Deep mutational scan, measured.
Amino acid sequence: EEWMVEKALMVRTGLGARQIESYRQGAWIEGVHFKRVSPSGESTLRGTTWYNYPEINKFIR
């Protein structure tokens, strides 16, 4: 699984929702560690946020 939603990321990493938000707003790079995608497939600020687990795992190492 490369891309996953927040709940799956929480299960895989043990991070809480606030921790994920903090990383997203600070250290993680949009387009690398996470992306927002609307149902139409376009990038957007209001779409579902998807997280790239392999890239996040590399960051944590």
Rank of each mutant, 00 (worst) to 15 (best):
E1R: 07
E1Q: 09
E1H: 08
E1M: 08
E1A: 10
E1G: 10
E1S: 10
E2Q: 08
E2R: 07
W3E: 01
W3Y: 02
W3T: 01
W3I: 00
W3R: 01
M4K: 00
M4G: 02
M4T: 03
M4D: 00
V5D: 15
V5I: 10
V5S: 15
V5T: 15
V5R: 13
E6L: 15
E6Q: 09
E6M: 15
E6W: 05
K7S: 15
K7Q: 12
K7M: 09
A8V: 12
A8G: 06
L9V: 04
L9R: 01
L9Q: 00
L9A: 02
M10C: 06
M10N: 03
M10T: 06
M10P: 00
M10E: 05
V11C: 14
V11E: 15
V11Y: 11
V11T: 09
V11A: 15
V11F: 11
R12D: 02
R12T: 06
R12S: 06
R12L: 14
T13N: 01
T13D: 01
T13P: 01
T13Y: 03
G14K: 05
G14N: 05
G14S: 05
G14D: 04
G16H: 11
G16I: 09
G16V: 10
G16S: 15
G16W: 06
G16L: 13
A17D: 05
A17P: 11
A17K: 14
A17I: 11
A17Y: 08
A17R: 14
R18F: 10
R18Y: 10
R18E: 14
Q19C: 09
Q19F: 04
Q19I: 06
I20E: 01
I20C: 02
I20Q: 01
E21K: 11
E21V: 06
E21C: 08
E21T: 06
E21S: 08
E21N: 07
S22T: 12
S22G: 08
S22Q: 14
S22H: 14
S22D: 12
S22C: 15
S22R: 12
Y23R: 02
Y23T: 01
Y23A: 04
R24V: 15
R24Y: 04
R24N: 03
R24I: 13
R24T: 12
Q25S: 10
Q25N: 14
Q25T: 12
G26N: 14
G26E: 11
G26H: 14
A27N: 07
A27M: 09
A27V: 11
A27K: 08
A27T: 08
A27Y: 11
W28D: 00
W28V: 01
W28F: 04
W28T: 00
I29W: 03
I29N: 04
E30R: 04
G31K: 03
G31I: 03
G31P: 02
G31W: 06
V32L: 10
V32N: 03
V32I: 12
V32Q: 06
H33W: 02
H33N: 01
F34T: 02
K35I: 13
K35Y: 06
K35L: 08
K35Q: 06
R36C: 15
R36E: 13
R36Q: 14
R36S: 13
R36V: 15
V37M: 10
V37H: 07
S38K: 09
S38V: 14
P39W: 09
P39H: 11
P39D: 14
S40P: 14
S40K: 09
S40L: 11
S40F: 11
G41M: 08
G41C: 07
G41H: 09
G41R: 07
E42N: 11
S43N: 12
S43A: 10
S43K: 07
S43E: 12
T44C: 09
T44A: 12
T44N: 13
T44R: 07
L45M: 11
L45C: 11
L45H: 12
L45K: 09
L45Q: 12
L45I: 12
R46G: 15
R46I: 14
R46W: 13
R46H: 14
R46L: 14
G47F: 13
G47Y: 13
G47N: 10
T48E: 15
T48M: 10
T48W: 06
T48F: 07
T48I: 14
T49M: 14
T49F: 15
T49C: 08
W50Y: 14
W50Q: 05
W50C: 11
W50S: 03
Y51A: 00
Y51F: 05
Y51K: 01
N52H: 06
N52T: 01
N52A: 02
N52R: 02
N52W: 03
N52L: 03
Y53E: 04
Y53N: 02
Y53D: 02
Y53I: 05
P54F: 12
P54I: 13
P54G: 08
P54V: 14
P54H: 11
E55G: 02
E55W: 03
E55L: 07
I56V: 08
I56G: 00
I56N: 00
I56Y: 01
N57M: 15
N57P: 00
N57Y: 14
N57H: 12
K58M: 07
K58L: 08
K58W: 06
K58A: 10
K58N: 09
F59I: 05
F59R: 03
F59Q: 04
F59W: 15
I60R: 03
I60P: 02
I60E: 03
R61E: 13
